[in-house]
């Protein structure tokens, strides 16, 4: 279904655009404490960068950068960062998701530790959202590229 575009303008422009999209997404993730934004928005913008890459450079080029298998692993890792930070607080003696207890590990006061905990969580969310959105996009746009699935064999 998806063929890479033969248009030079599209290819060049998207090659220029994608790095800026990634930088902007990272800014949105990191600066979520002080301005609108956070994990979800940043993750979706990252995924949009990959979508643009697929549209302009084709599936094979994109697979070299982020394969489906890697996306699946990343989505697991993303959610695990979130749940893992929660579990870390559990191990450090607080309740689940009580980031204040991270101050035992980090050399900061509890309020700052909570801020850092939020940052860690946002990164996890961003990874998960990016990977999952990219996966859903790929799954929907590559239906029928492979031999028939087992349903139609019956």
């Amino acid at each position: 279904m998806i063929r890479d575009s033969q248009d030079v303008i599209v290819k060049t422009l998207s090659r220029l655009l994608v790095p800026f999209m990634v930088i902007y997404a990272l800014y949105v993730i990191m600066h979520g404490h002080h301005s609108p934004g956070g994990g979800f928005q940043g993750g979706v913008i990252l995924a949009a960068g990959f979508v643009l890459l697929v549209v302009s450079h084709g599936l094979e080029q994109t697979r070299k950068r982020l394969s489906e298998k890697a996306a699946g692993v990343l989505s697991s890792i993303g959610v695990f960062i979130y749940a893992g930070i929660g579990a870390l607080c559990l191990i450090l003696g607080g309740n689940y998701l009580d980031y204040g207890k991270l101050s035992k590990l980090l050399p900061v006061v509890p309020a700052e530790a909570r801020s850092l905990g939020i940052l860690g969580v946002e990164i996890g969310v961003a990874l998960a959202v990016m990977a999952v959105m990219f996966t859903i996009f790929l799954v929907i746009f590559t239906v029928g590229e492979f031999p028939e699935d087992d349903r139609s064999e019956k």
Partner: peptide, 9 residues
Amino acid sequence: AVTIMIYRR
């Protein structure tokens, strides 16, 4: 995803 499954069938 479910819609696409239905269409393919």
